[in-house]
Nucleic acid binder design. Structure first.
Lengths: 251, 251
DNA sequence: CGGAGGGTTGAGATTCATCAACGCGTGTGG
DNA sequence: CCACACGCGTTGATGAATCTCAACCCTCCG
């Protein structure tokens, strides 16, 4: 039975999850044969720190977050926030030992779960699948590096600026508008600050030509965020090295 | 020509790099055929942010560190510190795009360099090698998660405590003594604090039964560090769940 | 002997978290 | 239909924690 048929019609086309990229139909078929789709209510804990990892979770719709939690104070450190098309727990599956992270739904969510055994076996059978895993995990790791840098040596303004820059490039650099994909408190925690400082930082951004209206972010011009560029963002910015980006600290 | 012969006699046995784990002789041979050993002086930059990644670096002797650097202020955020047997840039190779990190020697160092093309090809040819890469990268990622947690929600004391706990478990939990493997300023930066606060935090540790004498750390008893345990460290601690570790915040 | 680098200690400044209050939109139940 | 509570975001006042800057000690090495 083809489980993709039970997905929303346009899911595979529109989201095109990295996990399935370039997989042969037969390979994908086999992978999905043993997977299940689940609906979860908001706030449901799918994995807890210390649990044995059992699935890779692929978000069909809704929002998930992965985070670590402090036993004493109960404070949370957000590791990632996932939208449809994103996956989590792939890395955990392969590092051995219990899960170092919690996974929780933030909204009501629909999730595709791929069992641990199937994934591991398939990684050995299909080199392309293994490559996809490797690519996904390394991207996560790259992201983690940015988080580490942010919390070590970046000011709140720089953190928000960099986050905005990424979202801006996501939306296409010709687009002077984008939306915050998650609620502000969650973004704040992800960026290692309190909701209060996040809010105050947003006000600072207005001085740099960035207007905030609820979830909508409007930039005065396409270079308002150039100030926050680094070599990683430069490599995905079409305008870089076209002389147009002068504010860029790399020059 | 077998390049392992040019390594110190006992390197492979004693260090047993994760990268080569469980590889067949023939596979290892092929991998090493195109690799080179280099000697570098202290402070040499092997990779800079923005560079195209060209090698995996395996430390034979000496110390390397990977870090990100802030363009404006020039401040550094340490990502990892490597000793002999450790590798870096495996993750970068597979994430595509320019390197997000710098790699620099901290001491005079001897390094084995495996060219990018060879590694990628070999990852497709030898599933065990691909698995090794996946395992290594996920371990790095796990580590990065700990760093993120530390800087988000842990106090300097907790960060140092956790770092000590890991080193203690490394040395064997029966061993009441271990050494700091790197100089203090580097550990401090890695833990996201200044050398000054690191120093002051070390003094606090004395109140918890930890004596510091230069690089030597002596614990009053084997449970002095239990306070800093979490589910990740518990899973590698032999004494956990033996009733002996009561200070553990998990109970 | 003198200089350099790493580590420690102290005093002061700064920044961000904390705590508290409030506005606003939404959903709920009377 | 209104009253109310609730969650989220914002704003302001306060305080604590860590960074900064400076001085000093020590060891190592030329």
């Amino acid at each position: 039975m083809n489980f993709l048929m039970r997905l929303p019609e346009n899911f595979k086309e529109h989201q095109n999850p990295q996990l399935f990229e370039k997989l042969k139909e037969s390979s994908l078929e086999k992978l999905l044969q043993h997977s299940v789709i689940q609906d979860y209510e908001s706030g449901r804990l799918l994995v807890q720190q210390g649990d044995k990892p059992e699935y890779i979770y692929l978000v069909i719709s809704g929002v998930l977050k992965t985070f670590r939690i402090d036993a004493e104070e109960g404070r949370e450190a957000t590791i990632r926030m996932l939208q449809s098309g994103d996956t989590c727990m792939e890395a955990v599956l392969f590092m051995g030992g219990p899960s170092p992270i919690n996974v929780q739904t933030v909204n009501q969510s629909k999730v595709l779960q791929l069992p641990e055994r199937i994934v591991k076996q398939h990684a050995l059978d299909d080199a392309q699948f293994a490559m996809n895993l490797l690519r996904i995990v390394t991207r996560h790791y790259k992201n983690a590096m940015h988080q580490i840098e942010a919390m070590n040596i970046k000011s709140p303004l720089q953190r928000v600026g960099y986050y905005f820059l990424l979202k801006h490039l996501d939306a296409g650099h010709d687009n002077l508008e984008f939306e915050l994909p998650f609620q502000k408190q969650m973004i704040a925690n992800y960026l290692g600050m309190t909701p209060e400082t996040f809010s105050r930082t947003l006000k600072q951004m207005k001085g740099l030509g960035i207007e905030i209206e609820g979830e909508k972010i409007k930039m005065r011009d396409a270079f308002s965020l150039c100030h926050f560029c680094d070599s990683d963002t430069a490599s995905i910015c079409d305008n870089h090295d076209k002389g147009s980006c002068k504010a860029c600290p790399l020059h």
